[in-house]
Amino acid sequence: MYIRCAFFRGHVKPGCQEAFDSHIQEHLVTLWTRFPHVLEVRVLREVESDSADTHLEMVLAMRFPSREAIAEALASTTRYESREASKRLFELFDGDVFHTVFSADQFPLPAEG
């Protein structure tokens, strides 16, 4: 499995947190969950960190079954709709955004008892 993440490194502009959060919920989540082949969408918000140098305001993590599935999702009309709708987030955000694709292994937890 593969996970494509968008890292929002920086901070929401002062006084814009409510608008930032509302835009995600009202406009972007519905698009992100419609990407072709996406198996899971998670929006992660930093609560604490052991690094004072970097603040990740948000990480968008999308799980896909294959690299080919990611390529199809990135070529889809949904992606272009999402990019257009994301422009509002960038107006409310002071920082940069970068993307990383991870290969992900999943391991079962040991049975209790």
Rank of each mutant, 00 (worst) to 15 (best):
G113W: 15
R34W: 13
S76Q: 08
S22I: 09
I3W: 00
G113I: 12
D105V: 07
H99Q: 05
A6Q: 01
H37Y: 03
R34M: 12
D21A: 11
E84W: 13
A75Q: 08
M62P: 00
V29Y: 11
Q106V: 14
L56C: 04
H11N: 10
V12M: 05
K13Q: 10
V29I: 12
R34C: 14
L92Y: 10
V43A: 10
A69W: 00
F35Q: 01
P14G: 13
E91H: 09
A52P: 15
D94N: 11
Q17H: 03
R63T: 03
A75I: 09
E68T: 08
G10V: 02
G113T: 13
E112F: 15
V97D: 00
D94Q: 10
F8K: 04
P65R: 08
A52M: 14
P14S: 08
F102E: 01
E72V: 08
P36Q: 10
R42I: 05
M1T: 05
F35S: 01
E18I: 07
F20D: 04
V47S: 12
L56N: 06
I24C: 07
S86T: 02
W32V: 05
P36A: 10
R67Y: 04
G10N: 08
P65I: 07
F20M: 09
E48P: 09
F90Q: 02
E112K: 15
L31V: 10
C16F: 10
Q17C: 04
H27I: 14
A85H: 06
A69H: 02
E26H: 14
D53S: 11
R34L: 12
S66P: 02
T33N: 10
Q17V: 08
V101K: 00
V12L: 07
